[in-house]
Design a protein around this nucleic acid. Structure first.
Lengths: 252, 252
DNA sequence: ACGGACGTTCGGCAATGCCGAACGTCTGCT
DNA sequence: AGCAGACGTTCGGCATTGCCGAACGTCCGT
């Protein structure tokens, strides 16, 4: 049997130590206490800083347990998500001229939490609360790729909404993998004919997806004739997703 | 600048994922969600299991966040420590015929929480609540070596209680390092002439020292003429320290 | 002005972590 | 009852990664 992973055990020792002491700890004291050289201890602490498990007092330079660790068990309130996302979603609709949707995973479907109309006069229907299929929408692909809940493609009922809808588990798996690699998803006429969408994940607790933000519109308003996202559109979407993610970490 | 440590980041991703999902997670689902091979994920999870940050449901084999993580910020109540230690301490005194002391770090001194008299008729004084010096006692050396609170030898006032008392910071540092290597400490006439003591740490949260247990008596009752622990005595002491440590993890 | 201690960076080295192949076990299906 | 698939787990070869000594710039106390 292979042994335990040394650097994870050392990181745990750091966290145990910091958790046992009420005051923030100097790096040198931590290193001495654990019997490790300062650069070794520093490398561990820097990584724990990066994942939010440790924080550093900016004045003293000392280290303490961070909120990212103590908040591990917390799940995100959908109302909080919506409240944090609303302004960004409204701004994105205004800038792109497209419909913007915010969704979360609900069982084996996408639930729309927020829906911003295209900023024009055309008739539109408010869809908040609506369930959408995971396999046929950009929001669905993003949630499958980044959400912690383990929904497997083979466990889904894959209705064909258009001739372009993916209905085989293997094809869906590939689409999800592609989404994971790119950091965003694309749906081209898979849910409504002639309608395309792009979606980006919204994350909480370093890297964990809790929702997705999408821009939706007629294909030629979202994609090039070759089927790629229009220039600038993807960047605005991903930036909005990141900004919302950052706001989720803020405490009010 | 060197980058973050990959295996610590991966471990954090595991914890984030487990923390985001209400139900225990299958190893295969965890591996898929994180995009890692199963053996890689298993190595990480096995290590997190070992440090108490993750637990495994024995029936389903699934993994969840463990109490060792959520209890990181908890400090140990001295009354709990005393209550858990008392029976072991009493038994140790009965088996060894020596005085047994339980101490914790209190500022820059040892505070005795529990004191068991030698099981004989000689006059003895109850010392619970007494403060003892860190530099001159076996309890003190054990607490310096294993306790999370960072007390540095150079910050101590080192009174000479006997000619054998260590009074130089460098000598104390070496004694503490030796204690850390051995896992136990030895004081030979450094606090009271002709009296020797051995001490072992009591740990909480994998490896963090929260107290120490000592056997104390006339030198010839504790050490060989060469100054080594009497055969069998050290093993009984270390075993008692371990048993008390184990009992601290139990929930009532 | 100087020395000591701090947190931090750098890069050479080899120890360690990674992960494909394989295993034994369990469960569900035929 | 037998078989196939999926599970968690183990093993060991390989090279990537983590480790840590040397060194740095900064800050503080003397």
């Amino acid at each position: 049997m292979s042994g335990p992973i040394q650097s994870i055990e050392r990181a745990a020792a750091v966290l145990h130590f910091l958790g046992a002491v009420p005051e923030p700890v100097a790096l040198g004291d931590l290193a001495r206490a654990l019997g490790l050289p300062k650069p070794t201890t520093h490398g561990i602490v820097r990584t724990l800083l990066g994942v939010g498990f440790v924080v550093q007092d900016p004045e003293s330079g000392h280290y303490a347990i961070g909120g990212g660790l103590t908040r591990l068990g917390e799940t995100l309130d959908p109302h909080l998500l919506r409240s944090r996302a609303a302004n960004w979603a409204d701004g994105l609709a205004a800038r792109t001229g497209l419909e913007v949707q915010l969704g979360i995973l609900s069982g084996s479907a996408v639930e729309l939490l927020h829906h911003v109309f295209r900023p024009d006069d055309s008739p539109q229907r408010l869809r908040v609360g609506e369930l959408q299929p995971l396999h046929a929408t950009a929001l669905g692909l993003a949630l499958l790729a980044f959400s912690p809940a383990a929904v497997r493609p083979r466990d889904l009922v894959m209705t064909a909404y258009t001739p372009a809808t993916v209905t085989r588990a293997l094809d869906l798996t590939r689409a999800v993998q592609q989404t994971a690699r790119r950091g965003w998803s694309l749906a081209d006429g898979t849910y409504r004919p002639g309608v395309a969408a792009l979606a980006a994940p919204i994350r909480h607790h370093v890297g964990v997806g809790v929702g997705a933000l999408a821009v939706v519109g007629l294909r030629e308003r979202v994609l090039t004739p070759a089927g790629e996202p229009l220039p600038g559109l993807l960047e605005q979407l991903v930036a909005a997703g990141s900004a919302i993610s950052d706001r989720l970490e803020e405490r009010l």
